[in-house]
Design a protein around this nucleic acid. Structure first.
Length: 590
DNA sequence: GAGATTATGAATACGCAA
DNA sequence: TTGCGTATTCATAATCTC
């Protein structure tokens, strides 16, 4: 099916997206893939809309990181154009050789201003004492390279090292750079701030104002709160990304009170469209890093409690349009009572919950539910406040529902499926254990939420789309697209768990999909060559979607909450790697 | 050995009063 | 501004059972 890049793609106007219509803000000065001069480089919008060859852009890409042009050309010659990872490795090797203690050359005389910076900063510092000079210079340049790979300019990196010292950690250095960037940004007027999201002043009067009024009454009635929300989403915080309250992103289907416009950084503009998801409440700095890598797009934080009866606080980074979204119909139950009518009879008046908390990967023990039964049973009538609080705390913590007289219970897997927007029995049978069902479901998308964001694709791709689905899990993205009525022409799905792959395969077959489902077990299998081959054979990807592992980010993890560098969560960088490769390959083919 | 069961806090944000 | 109380969180390791 090689017609994907034909007439349908021509309908998409990547450069004049409606999101671009409002502002004309200057670009961010610290895009993760900007060179020191702030010029656009490989994989960005300017590159994709220019007529230059991919080869020269590839050179520019690495020159932007601070490598000499000649060195880059040699590395590309050795590794070929498609394998950017190998090129980078080769360049780092060259640099290490070049920057041996005997040769104190800057990485790139044109871009690296190490010497002038040292003149500027070294007057009070003692880092460059003679006896340490060679080693510290070597280490410094290694660190500069590391920071350059993270997207900082060589000038920023060098200044940071000079200020913080040669032994400063990467975290300290990035903090310093970020602080410098923010202090520069503070000097600028709000109109000059990059990457802004600016709400249109006039709210749209949906539904004759009924929903709007209700919404403002319930959440944003207070003008101060409204102002705070607007400011938080417009300007964020000067130090780290702040999560807006209420957590509704660019709007929710039930209360679409405002129309937001945003201007994407050029480097973020596709093709392809992409959509990345992870938990909203991460250790500090994680979303800053994610944002920096994903082309400086401001994450859209949304709590699925506005879409269904369970909370699910997630951040989404995507380059999709944000106007004319529509929800899946019928709308799912929005309260516990609507979702589980049989619980009404047993629900005590003092349990005031209307929404469940986040559906996680494990459930309460029988011992706990038994303990609660005994406590409530023995008391007869309304328990004292202290007992009520204990029971309610446990019910909130474990998402317990009242299923009988004085009896609470954890949700059944099929109930979790329903809450998350999957078809009943989606994860049932076919070799998966009950424990693993909870685990897979707990790690999944909330389908209605994601579908709302993806709904804009329906009109754009009437003939269907090609999807690259990374960390597919039980196929939340695929189910969302299918439920939206978007034809799945080709789906390349990457999922480590065999039972999950089987679940998606079964769903694919039982929903009579006419397209092709190609699956891989590991993201590492998708290198440049393989991606190029896939793109050649299907005609390019229209959407790259996925949520990388949250194990090391999630608050529930008491053992290995190690942040984005954690064992599993570091796979985020594979998402970025693959997305960037796809952008490059597709750009080359345009 | 697979699956089920059980026990195991801390990081983070936020509201509010001092 | 600071300190304190409250609320929330796509989990993991050890152990048990069959």
């Amino acid at each position: 099916n090689g017609d994907a890049s034909g007439e349908e793609d021509d309908k998409i106007d990547w450069d004049t997206d409606d999101e671009l219509e409002i502002q004309n803000f200057p670009l961010s000065s610290h895009s993760s893939l900007s060179n020191p001069g702030g010029e656009a480089i490989l994989g960005d919008g300017e590159a994709s809309s220019s007529t230059g060859s991919c080869h020269s852009k590839l050179i520019q890409h690495f020159v932007g990181m601070g490598f000499p042009e000649q060195m880059v050309a040699k590395a590309i010659e050795e590794n070929g154009e498609s394998n950017t990872e190998s090129i980078l490795e080769t360049l780092l090797t060259y640099s290490a050789l070049e920057n041996s203690p005997q040769r104190q050359q800057p990485v790139n005389a044109n871009h690296c201003s190490l010497e002038s910076d040292e003149n500027e900063f070294s007057n009070t510092d003692s880092w460059s004492e003679d006896e340490e000079n060679t080693d510290s210079s070597f280490n410094k340049e290694k660190t500069v390279l590391s920071l350059a790979n993270m997207g900082y300019t060589l000038e920023e990196a060098s200044k940071a090292i000079d200020k913080c010292g040669p032994n400063a950690s990467i975290a300290e250095l990035t903090d310093f750079i970020f602080a410098t960037q923010m202090s520069t940004a503070r000097d600028a007027s709000p109109q000059q701030l990059p990457n802004e999201i600016k709400p249109k002043p006039e709210p749209i009067d949906y539904d004759n104002g009924m929903h709007k009024r209700k919404f403002f009454e319930s959440e944003l009635c207070d003008s101060k709160k409204r102002r705070e929300y607007e400011e938080s989403i417009m300007y964020g915080d000067n130090e780290t990304i702040r999560i807006p309250k209420p957590m509704i992103g660019y709007g929710i289907p039930t209360e679409p009170c405002r129309v937001f416009h945003r201007r994407l950084p050029d480097s973020a503009i596709g093709p392809p469209y992409f959509y990345y998801e992870n938990v909203a409440l991460t250790p500090k700095g994680v979303w800053d890093t994610i944002k920096r890598f994903l082309y400086d797009i401001e994450p859209e934080f949304v709590d699925s409690k506005y879409f269904c009866a369970a909370a699910r606080k997630r951040g989404y980074v995507h380059n999709l349009p944000i106007v004319n979204r529509f929800p899946l119909l019928p709308l799912p139950p929005h309260t516990i009572s609507e979702a589980f009518p049989l619980t009404r009879r047993w629900w005590p008046t003092w349990d005031t919950r209307t929404k469940l908390n986040c559906l996680q990967t494990s459930i309460a023990t029988a011992k706990l539910t038994d303990r609660i039964r005994k406590i409530v049973e023995d008391l007869k009538g309304e328990p004292p406040l202290k007992v009520q609080k204990y029971v309610l705390d446990e019910c909130r913590k474990w998402n317990l529902v009242w299923v009988g007289k004085n009896k609470v219970a954890p949700l059944e897997p099929d109930e979790v499926e329903m809450l998350l927007g999957f078809p009943k029995n989606h994860t049932r049978g076919g070799g998966i254990s009950r424990t693993d069902r909870y685990k897979s479901l707990g790690n999944s998308f909330q389908v209605d939420t994601v579908a709302y964001h993806l709904s804009v694709l329906k009109d754009m791709y009437p003939g269907g789309i090609n999807v690259l689905s990374l960390f597919s899990g039980i196929g939340g993205a695929e189910v969302a697209l299918h439920r939206l009525g978007i034809t799945l022409k080709n789906v390349v799905s990457v999922e480590k768990s065999e039972v999950n792959r089987n679940i998606v395969r079964s769903w694919w077959e039982q929903t009579n999909q006419r397209g092709n489902l190609i699956d891989f077990a590991f993201v590492q299998q998708l290198n440049g060559d393989r991606l190029e081959h896939l793109i050649d054979s299907i005609g390019g990807f229209d959407l790259v979607i996925g949520g990388s592992p949250c194990n090391n980010l999630a608050g529930s993890n008491r053992y290995t909450r190690d942040g984005l560098e954690g064992k599993e969560s570091a796979l985020f960088y594979d998402y970025f790697r693959i997305l960037d490769l796809v952008k490059c390959i597709m750009d080359k083919q345009r």
